[in-house]
């Protein structure tokens, strides 16, 4: 569970911030701006990058070749952000992203990581038992599809470019982007058609 911070930690943060402000190191507006900037990032950016890659081969090449440049084209400022790598799923290879050492996550295009991504269980198990973890998400891969776990250990941040689902021919970028959830971009889930459509 994401346990709330203890009162003494809230007080400790206040004291540290007050000391830094008193010394002229940071200002309250620095903190407010940094938080607002981080709050604006969301998986919708990553989803749109994927949807565009399904529609536009040139964009797909850019995305796979230089994810950070592609993100800049989406209006995301990547100055100071780690490089973004994009992992291309195929019919025979599925990628799953984890950071076993800490919690590296492509925050510029996905926003804050969810608590489970930072949990000891996910970090420990995804690399050793990826199929077990996928099963917990109800994710089943096609027979013959290999799993490549990507342990995000260093300077890159990684996002998955999944396969475009069958049955989406003629769909718009907006419609396609709606299929791409945060879990899909991490690789614990696959894009799924709404049940009503899938049944047709």
């Amino acid at each position: 569970m994401s346990t709330p911070a203890r009162p003494e930690s809230l007080a400790r943060l206040d004291r540290l911030v007050a000391a830094l402000i008193a010394k002229g190191i940071v200002t309250e507006s620095d903190l407010v701006e940094a938080q607002a900037r981080t709050d604006r990032a969301s998986p919708e950016v990553g989803a749109r990058m994927v949807a565009r890659a399904w529609l536009d081969p040139d964009w797909r090449r850019l995305l796979l070749g230089n994810g950070a440049e592609a993100a800049e084209h989406m209006g995301v400022s990547m100055a100071g952000a780690p490089p973004l790598g994009v992992l291309e799923d195929t019919a025979t290879l599925h990628h799953l992203v984890v950071c076993t050492l800490c919690s590296c996550y492509p925050r510029a295009v996905l926003g804050y990581p969810p608590s489970w991504y930072k949990s000891f269980e996910y970090r420990s198990r995804a690399v050793r038992d990826p199929r077990g973890v996928l099963a917990e998400w109800g994710t089943t891969l096609a027979a013959g599809c290999r799993v490549r776990v990507v342990d995000s250990t260093a300077d890159y941040r990684w996002m998955v470019l999944p396969m475009r689902p069958a049955g989406t021919e003629g769909w718009s970028e907006d419609q396609l982007a709606a299929l791409v959830t945060r879990d899909v971009l991490v690789g614990v889930a696959l894009p799924r058609l709404p049940v009503a459509l899938a049944a047709e």
Partner: peptide, 22 residues
């Protein structure tokens, strides 16, 4: 890229782990 068996002798053949190493 690292094949799975030398890391852990379990899991599915063909699965692997891709890691940034200096």
């Amino acid at each position: 890229v690292f094949e799975r068996p030398p890391l852990w002798h379990e899991g599915e053949a063909g699965d692997d782990v891709l890691v940034e190493i200096f």
